[in-house]
């Protein structure tokens, strides 16, 4: 992919994004950039706002304030019709795979192809075969999602996300619930495909091994705020205690995972 094809040096740029649900502030002044051809991982504990952030980028949610640029186009102000044009340029791998259970694997991958243009079904079949081959699932076209394993579902979802040769790939917890081998398979696939197809990718994850394996850039969120950004080496060397506790998986530290006896008593008396 040549640089001249792009309108902006950044595939995705988020500026000062904030969002509250009722009194709870989920995202507070989040900013980061993803350069073309890079893989950025958004990390953080459960409930830190990383999936919400991704949903804002893909346009499922609208922010209270802040801007999101996809290859230089500001997407937060676009209406549904205009956004659907931008969406054609990206693929999304959902946490659960989000395959259509009533359709076969082949029909799932063919869906975006057939819906986006008047492609003849036999051409779509050919593209489906190619995409399934990319993810190592040749010959699985006629099986239903219920007949294949969790890891295979994720790979089919990846094939579907790649169906329209997107410039941008978004993955929401692509390795959650998978065994270490399958996690590694999905990671390798993400890295290989982004390199081979010249895509950029944003991967939301709380799996540190996986994040360090694939990322060229990292963003760490804590309670809706960006605590650290940088390359994997910079993140590893960052002395921030919250970040270090998360990377090393310590139970004790500044992240309030468990209330102490005193805090528990205090809260109980307050309520």
């Amino acid at each position: 992919m040549s640089e001249t094809k792009h309108k902006s040096p950044y595939a995705v740029e988020v500026r000062g994004l904030s969002r509250s649900f009722g009194p709870r502030k989920i995202l507070a002044d989040v900013s980061f950039q993803l350069k073309h051809g890079e893989i950025l991982t958004i990390m953080g504990g459960s409930g830190c706002g990383k999936s919400t952030l991704l949903r804002h980028i893909i346009g499922s949610l609208k922010p209270d304030s802040g801007e999101i640029y996809i290859d230089g186009t500001e997407t937060t102000k676009l209406d549904d019709e205009e956004f659907s044009k931008v969406r054609k340029r990206f693929g999304m791998l959902f946490q659960t795979g989000a395959l259509f259970n009533s359709m076969t694997v082949g029909e799932n991958v063919a869906l975006p192809i057939l819906e986006s243009s008047d492609v003849a079904p036999h051409i779509a079949d050919l593209v489906v075969k190619l995409k399934l081959e990319l993810v190592g699932l040749t010959g699985f076209e006629n099986l239903k999602p219920a007949q294949i394993s969790g890891g295979m579902k994720k790979r089919v979802a990846m094939a579907r996300a790649l169906a329209l040769d997107p410039d941008l790939l978004f993955c929401d917890e692509p390795t959650s619930g998978l065994d270490p081998v399958m996690t590694s398979v999905i990671d390798t696939l993400t890295v290989d495909l982004t390199r081979k197809l010249g895509m950029s990718a944003i991967v939301v994850t709380h799996d540190m091994t996986s994040a360090f394996r694939i990322a060229t850039q990292m963003v760490f969120l804590f309670e809706g705020r960006v605590v650290a950004t940088g390359t994997p080496e910079e993140i590893k060397a960052n002395p921030n205690p919250i970040l270090q506790q998360f990377i090393n998986g310590y139970a004790d530290g500044p992240i309030p995972l468990k209330l102490s006896k005193d805090d528990y008593l205090k809260r109980l008396l307050q309520s």
Binding site: I58, S60, R87, A98, F100, E115, S116
Partner: peptide
């Protein structure tokens, strides 16, 4: 069930109404 399984959101993201 499709909504819960993120299938409807997946349609949206694929640009399918």
């Amino acid at each position: 069930t499709m909504k819960v399984e993120e299938e409807i959101e997946a349609l949206d993201v694929m640009g399918i109404d």
